[in-house]
Amino acid sequence: MDSETLAQLQANFERQTAIEENIRSIVKELDASCRAITIPLSRIHVAKDDEAIAQILNDAKPLFGTVRLNLTKISEAFPAEKFYSYNHIWSRVLQQAIFAAALITYLESKSLLTLEELQNYLGFSVLINNDAVTDFHITIEEYLHGLFSLPAELARFSVNSVTYQAFHRPLEISEFVAQLFSSFQSLNLKNDSVRKHFDSIKYDVKKIEEVVYNLSVRGLAK
C-alpha cells in the first residue's frame, strides 16, 4: 500500500470518526434533555390525585422543545444517506423520548401515541416503508421500543394507584395494555432486540392482571 493511498484512507477514517464524535457529543445533550422529561414523569407514582398528575404532564411537555432541538442538531451532523451508519449512536436515547411521549399520551387521553402525535413531540416522522432515506427520521424499531417500555411503567403505576386509592386506574390500564399487547402480537418479530423487549412485556401484563384481581376479590374494582 503506497503512502498516498494509506493517507487517503486514514483521512477518510478520521473524517468518519470526527462525525461520530460530534454525534456522540450531541447525543449526550439529547440524553440529558430526555432524562429531564423522564425524571419528573416518574413522579406520577407519588402523585396524590389526577390534578397532581395533570400538573406533572404540563411541566413535562414543554421540555420536548430541547429534545427537538438536539434531534435537529443530530440530523445536520451527517448526510442523510449515511443515516444507518450512525443510527445506533442515538437510537437508545431516542427510545426514551418516545417512551416519555407515549406515557404522557396515555395519561392524558388513555390512548396510544399515534405517529402524528409523535411527530409533534419530536419534530421528525417515523418512516414506515423501506425506501432509501432522504431525510432524518425515526425508525419503526425505535417507535416500537418506546411503546414496549410502556407496560412496565403502567404496571408500577397501577400498583401505586391502589396505594393512593385510585381504584379505577388499574382496570383502565389493564384494558389498554391488553389491547396494546394484542396489537404487538400481530407483528412478526424476528430474533433481535425488538423481539427480546417484546418478550419481557408479558410479565408486566401479568402484574397488572394481578392488581386487577386483588381489587376484584375485595370488591374494590368498580
Partner: peptide
C-alpha cells in the same frame, strides 16, 4: 381478562 383484546390501531 376483562377485555375483548381487539388490539389498538
Amino acid at each position: 381478562m376483562t377485555t375483548k383484546a381487539v388490539g389498538l390501531a
